[in-house]
Simulated scan of single mutants.
Amino acid sequence: MESVTSTSAPPPVPYIADPYPALARIRANGPVSILHSDEGIPMWVIARYRNVRAALADPRFGQDARRAQTLADNRVAGVTLGGDVIHMLNSDPPDHTRLRHLVQGAFTARRVAAMRPLVERITTSLLDGVGGRQTVDLVQDFAFPLPMLVICELLGFPAEERDAYRSWSTAILTHNDDPAAFATALRDMTDYIEVQLRHRRARPGEDLLTELLAARDAGQLTDDEIVGMVFLLLIGGHETTVNLLGTATLALVRNPDQHRWLLANPHALSEAIDEFLRYESPVAMATLRFTTAPVTVDDVVIPAGELVLVSLGGANRDPDRFPDADRLILDRRDTGHLAFGHGLHRCLGAFLGKLEGEVALGALLGRYPGLTLAAEVRQLRWRDTIMLRGLESLPVSLHG
């Protein structure tokens, strides 16, 4: 994405390391730009805040993965968009409405607030586990296991398998890099979920998996839809928080004035989480959409049947919406960010993600207020996907 007029895919490493200059050029280029994938498929990109927010709520932008794949197949044979498992995030109404209704009760503000003691226990245990070590990988030792242990508790999945979940998630989300690894991970994860379903059917518990099986027995879900639902919850239930904790910590050590401000104002942590989410949106690009009818974006018409990328990261750095958009300002007090999306597909786990971020970051800074980066910024590795904005690892010195 180095050029908004390029006819080939952008060099991945420069964009992955810092996408914001390219996104600024895309915004400046107009309300909509056209990029091309490696295979030559045109993608219409929307990156201005007001246009992104409107697109996220516009039903003319469909998300049905099967229809999107058909559109891609009609242009270039053999391209995989990664929608092999169908779930509510890549479905349209009425399927989306039915699927979301079945699980949304588990993620209400009240239900999530009741999970705070669990999140606090897991956070304390993880911090105890790194106590006494001078340097740790904050992603691998803290940011990843925390939300994964929470979602395992919610689903009733074995926590000791969390490294396998992470491996599958990485291969699936970076499917364009290694199609064979994607196919293997998809098969292994699907098989694993089916085994867990058989176990839970034999031994019901007080967990979401048991509730989904009850809905299936009541005729509200199919077996494939349960697999898709668990697939989405397992991946989506941890990726956002992993990225949030990693990028928030990095942002603090790179902005010592904001680090000092947060240490002096711990009561403002909940509001500060919103600024971290805006500054580095954990989901940088919304799920792939396509136009079901012609759509006019300002003065540009996107014809029907076009694939569309909606940039949450671009919208959240739009200076027309957020003054000094490229600066981290923890007392900004503007919660209008789109990090959790907007409209019909707004992130179901938004309350849980914010709770995990608040508890984890607060506990980390409470124990290690002087933590510093233990590597050069240019040496840090970022997740190799334009869909997510997250670090592969983050070495930090806990004692400053």
Rank of each mutant, 00 (worst) to 15 (best):
L344C: 00
E239R: 05
Q63H: 08
T292Y: 06
S270C: 01
D207P: 05
G370D: 15
A159V: 15
H101M: 03
G370C: 01
A339M: 11
D274V: 03
A360K: 08
R333K: 11
G400L: 11
V310K: 03
H399K: 00
C152Q: 09
V4S: 14
D137W: 13
L330S: 09
E120T: 15
S91P: 07
F107E: 06
R110C: 06
D298M: 02
P204M: 08
I329F: 02
A180Q: 14
H238W: 09
H238D: 06
S393D: 15
P158E: 13
D18G: 00
R381F: 02
A57E: 08
R346Y: 04
T247D: 04
V301T: 15
Y49E: 08
V359N: 02
A218F: 03
A215K: 01
W168G: 01
A77S: 14
L388Q: 14
G82N: 04
P395M: 12
M148C: 15
E306I: 08
D177Q: 14
L245C: 04
T190S: 12
G400V: 12
G219H: 04
R389F: 02
D324T: 04
E211L: 09
V119Q: 02
S91M: 08
Q258H: 06
P147C: 07
G132E: 13
A143R: 11
H345N: 02
E376A: 14
V13R: 15
G336A: 13
R383Y: 01
E280I: 10
H36V: 11
L232T: 04
L348Q: 06
R187C: 03
N74W: 03
E194N: 02
L209V: 11
A77P: 00
D191C: 01
M88Q: 04
T240S: 10
S270H: 12
P14R: 12
A202I: 07
P303Q: 04
L344A: 08
R201G: 01
V301C: 12
P145T: 07
L361W: 14
P94D: 05
W168D: 06
T335Y: 10
L371R: 06
T170C: 00
R98A: 03
L173Y: 00
A9V: 15
A77N: 05
V359K: 07
S270Y: 03
A374L: 12
L35F: 02
V300P: 01
G62K: 09
L262E: 11
E376I: 01
S311H: 05
R381K: 13
L288R: 06
L352N: 02
C152F: 13
R346C: 01
T247I: 03
L309Y: 10
I235H: 02
R203M: 07
R346H: 13
H238V: 09
L155N: 00
L348R: 04
V112I: 15
F322H: 03
R75Q: 14
L212K: 01
D177C: 00
R198L: 14
D137C: 05
R198V: 14
S6E: 14
R27S: 10
P145L: 10
F340N: 11
T97A: 03
I302H: 04
D299G: 02
I302D: 08
E392C: 08
A248M: 07
L328Q: 04
A251C: 10
T80S: 10
I273P: 01
R111S: 08
L89I: 09
R60L: 12
A109F: 11
